[in-house]
Design a protein around this nucleic acid. Structure first.
Lengths: 108, 108
DNA sequence: ACATAATATTACTTGACAGGAATATTCTTT
DNA sequence: AAAGAATATTCCTGTCAAGTAATATTATGT
């Protein structure tokens, strides 16, 4: 897993930008408006997100439309796969415990 | 989604620690050994991970065993749920495209 | 070509954080 | 109680990143 992805998402305003872009691709100005950020900040955050591969840009006329790239999120998803085993193991143990409480299963 | 989680994972050594703890809970000294980190660094990183709720500690005799907490990972998983729609939509469009190529479906 | 809109970049200041070294704390063992 | 092992904390220093303000760039419309 790439730490750069986490780094890009670690900044609250950038996380907001990503969550906003999930709904629809947007130009810089609208992102800034909706999140009440200054335009230069917004551009800089978008640059970080872009270099981390989280967004891509599509110039349309005067404006630059930013939208999410799915790849990093898919990578995150794959990485999380390994961790699902962990919490599922715990859930199983909880299951066992509940079964014991209900007399469905003896204690080991 | 909590940016603190991303922040904790954004530091490469901490990401390594988390990946290591996925295999098994470990005391500080072994974490430091396996990742070739100094003990104070390791303790400090574990503190950050702990404050972010990613790990918990269980003191056993002289040592402190750190292990992962599932909750933040589950939260990450839920957050990613929203994003699955995005890339699945793209996959669908790819599907459509492939079907067009194979003459199975007309262009809209 | 010029004025304007949209966006990007730069310079500056400030705060957060990582690494290293030294030290403090906590627990165990004798 | 003292010594030693395991871990945590503190202090210092250097680096990086974020916010602000000002300016540069790029594209559009007249």
């Amino acid at each position: 897993m790439n730490a750069q992805t986490f780094n890009a998402l670690a900044e609250p305003n950038r996380l907001d930008i990503v969550d906003l872009l999930l709904e629809e691709p947007l130009p810089v100005g609208e992102i800034a408006d909706k999140l009440k950020l200054n335009q230069p900040q917004t551009s800089k955050h978008l640059r970080v997100l872009s270099e981390a591969g989280l967004v891509e840009v599509q110039p349309i006329a005067n404006r630059r439309i930013y939208k999410l790239r799915p790849e990093p999120f898919q990578e995150l998803d794959s990485w999380l796969d390994s961790y699902r085993r962990m919490w599922e193991a715990r859930m199983d143990r909880l299951d066992d415990y509940l079964n014991v409480l209900q007399g469905k299963k003896p204690l080991n």
